[in-house]
Amino acid sequence: MASPAVDDYLKTIYHHTEWQSERITPSQLAAELGLAPSSVTEMVQKLAAQGLVTHRPYGPISLSAEGEHRAASIIRRHRLIETWLVSEFGYAWDEVHDEAEVLEHAVSDRLLEGIDERLGRPRFDPHGDAIPDAAGDVHREAFVLLAAAVPGHSGRVLRVSDRDPELLRAVEAAGVAVGAEVTVTDAATLVVAGADVALPPAAADAVWLSA
Rank of each mutant, 00 (worst) to 15 (best):
G120R: 08
E66V: 11
G152I: 01
E101N: 14
R79G: 09
F143W: 15
D133C: 01
S73M: 13
V150P: 04
E113G: 14
A134R: 12
A71N: 05
R79A: 05
G59E: 13
E141P: 03
V86D: 03
G136L: 00
R163A: 13
E95M: 09
E166D: 14
S64G: 02
S108W: 02
G155Q: 09
R163T: 07
A180N: 13
W84D: 03
D164I: 11
V150A: 12
L112S: 06
P165W: 04
V171E: 00
F143T: 09
P165Y: 06
D125L: 00
A130Y: 00
D116Y: 09
H55M: 10
E82D: 07
E172T: 11
R76V: 03
F89A: 11
L112Q: 07
A187P: 13
E95P: 05
H105Q: 11
I131H: 00
L146A: 01
D162V: 06
G120P: 08
F143M: 09
D116C: 03
D186T: 11
V171T: 00
R79W: 14
V96R: 02
A92I: 01
L119F: 10
L80P: 05
S108V: 02
T83L: 06
E66Q: 14
G90N: 09
I74G: 08
E104N: 08
E104H: 09
R169G: 08
D98E: 13
A71P: 07
L145V: 10
Y91S: 08
L158V: 04
P126D: 14
I61R: 00
L167V: 05
L145E: 08
S154Y: 08
F89S: 11
A100I: 06
F124S: 10
A148W: 10
H55C: 08
P126E: 10
R156D: 11
P57M: 02
R56A: 10
A142K: 13
L168F: 07
L145A: 09
G114W: 09
I131F: 00
E117W: 11
L167I: 03
T185P: 05
V157N: 05
V176L: 00
G136Q: 00
S154C: 11
V102G: 01
R77P: 03
G67Q: 04
I74R: 13
S161W: 06
E117R: 13
P57H: 04
A187M: 08
L80G: 04
V157G: 01
V171R: 00
P151H: 07
R159C: 12
S62H: 14
I115F: 06
H78W: 02
S108C: 02
E172N: 11
W93R: 15
L103F: 12
A187I: 07
G120Y: 07
E88V: 10
E166V: 07
R169C: 04
S62K: 15
E172F: 06
D133P: 05
L119M: 08
V150M: 14
G155D: 07
W93Q: 14
E117P: 01
H78M: 01
G175S: 10
I75N: 03
R123I: 04
